[in-house]
Amino acid sequence: MLDFLLSFLILAGAVFTFIGSLGLARLRDFYTRLHGPTKATTLGVGCLLIASSLYFSHQGNGVSLHEILITLFLFITAPVSAHLLAKAALHQDLPRVNDRRGHPRD
């Protein structure tokens, strides 16, 4: 039973991480590409970490919770890097496709 749950979590994690990276290839300008790696991957890594926590808790060496820290640090750092990348892109005035609504000021 646990094996099924673990493999489901690991597969789901892998799929989400993959979709996040796929976004880099499929989306069409810098700003939209930024969304893939910041979002889809958090759930991907989250699933993998839950799986890790469950597995090592089941191993018998007590409850394993330091995966929570990885999640915490990821949730703190991922948005910061996304924010800085977006800001740098604005300063460089990178081209945007599809739609030009809203005007970023410098």
């Binding site: 989400f16 979709i19 996040g20 796929l22 976004g23 499929r26 989306l27 069409r28 300008d29 700003y31 939209t32 969304h35 893939g36 979002k39 889809a40 958090t42 759930l43 991907g44 945007r96 599809n98 739609d99 609504r101 809203g102 005007h103 970023p104």
Partner: peptide, 24 residues
């Protein structure tokens, strides 16, 4: 966060031409 992930995953797999990105 969980719903955002699902939504963004759908958007990525859908047609990128249909997206309407905007600065707000």
């Amino acid at each position: 966060i969980v719903t955002a992930n699902l939504v963004v995953a759908m958007r990525i797999l859908g047609r990128p031409e249909n997206l309407r990105p905007a600065f707000i």
